[in-house]
Amino acid sequence: MGSRMEARKPREPLSRERALASAIALVDAEGMVALTMRRLAAELGVEAMSLYHHLPGKAGLLDGLVDAVAAEITSAAEQAEADAPGVDWRTRLRLRFLAARTVMLRHPWAPALLSSRPTVPAGVYAYYDGILATLVDGGFSYRIAHRALHAFGSLALGFAQEVFRPDAGGEADAEAAEAAMVALAERLPHLAAMVAAETHDATDPTLGWCDSQTEFEFTLDLLFDGLERHRSSA
């Protein structure tokens, strides 16, 4: 009797934010292949057509994911800077980019999605405006700051774009991998030597073969060292 009289907890109404949070949780757990409008609707306990009021189809869903990740990056970067007031431009950017990387490591599907969308969400522009503000406040001209943005590329968003992937053909057994390495060594000796020499520590977080934390931070420091030499340029 008592349980019947207890008021039922109302179901949280469907919203764009709720749908995107559920989509992110799904993709974090099972990868992008699991994400469909039907599957997301099932996770939310709604009819698939209900989602279209908030996310117009798969393209709208993917754009929404990019928006959500961009907002997460901006929030993390701003918090990292707020936790270390009064530091120089280099430290501010390093904190900002490493904060963005923590978001990418939390959502390892995000780099490929960000790179594939045909348009840039407004949140990404706002994030880069903050980077420009840091550079200008640090004594850089807009001309050099613009060139810095080109040099940073996707590093500013927390990931390095892959150029060379020795595992690009998918998983192979040990015998096939060894044969591939032998063939590579015969045709491309320097690339083969690099692949053989470049092994990542098991504790070094990676987003790809060419994107470990150590490599990421090495590249940041290299870029920052170069920028410092041009800080007083017009």
Results as ranks from 00 to 15, higher is better:
3 S>F: 09
6 E>F: 10
7 A>W: 10
7 A>L: 13
8 R>K: 15
9 K>V: 15
11 R>K: 15
11 R>V: 13
12 E>G: 14
18 R>P: 09
19 A>Q: 06
21 A>G: 12
22 S>A: 15
24 I>H: 02
25 A>K: 08
29 A>Q: 14
29 A>C: 05
29 A>L: 11
37 M>W: 04
39 R>D: 05
40 L>M: 08
40 L>H: 00
41 A>L: 12
43 E>W: 04
48 A>F: 00
48 A>D: 08
51 L>T: 10
51 L>D: 09
58 K>V: 01
62 L>G: 05
65 L>Q: 08
65 L>V: 11
66 V>P: 04
67 D>T: 11
67 D>K: 09
74 T>V: 03
75 S>E: 11
79 Q>F: 01
81 E>F: 01
81 E>C: 02
85 P>Q: 05
88 D>M: 03
89 W>K: 03
94 R>C: 04
101 R>C: 11
102 T>M: 05
103 V>S: 01
107 H>C: 12
107 H>A: 14
115 S>P: 00
115 S>W: 00
115 S>R: 12
116 S>C: 03
118 P>S: 06
123 G>K: 04
127 Y>H: 14
130 G>M: 06
131 I>K: 04
132 L>Y: 13
134 T>P: 10
139 G>R: 03
140 F>V: 02
140 F>T: 05
141 S>F: 02
142 Y>M: 14
143 R>S: 13
148 A>D: 04
148 A>L: 04
148 A>E: 01
154 S>M: 08
154 S>A: 09
156 A>C: 07
156 A>H: 00
160 A>R: 15
161 Q>Y: 06
162 E>A: 13
163 V>D: 14
164 F>R: 14
166 P>R: 05
168 A>E: 15
170 G>W: 06
170 G>M: 09
175 E>H: 13
176 A>E: 09
178 E>F: 14
185 A>M: 07
186 E>R: 12
190 H>R: 15
195 V>R: 11
195 V>P: 05
195 V>Y: 06
197 A>M: 07
199 T>E: 07
201 D>I: 00
204 D>K: 10
205 P>L: 03
206 T>F: 00
206 T>S: 11
206 T>N: 07
207 L>W: 01
209 W>R: 11
210 C>K: 08
212 S>T: 09
212 S>K: 01
213 Q>M: 11
218 F>C: 12
218 F>G: 13
221 D>Q: 15
222 L>I: 10
223 L>I: 14
225 D>C: 11
227 L>I: 02
230 H>M: 14
230 H>W: 07
232 S>N: 11
232 S>Y: 08
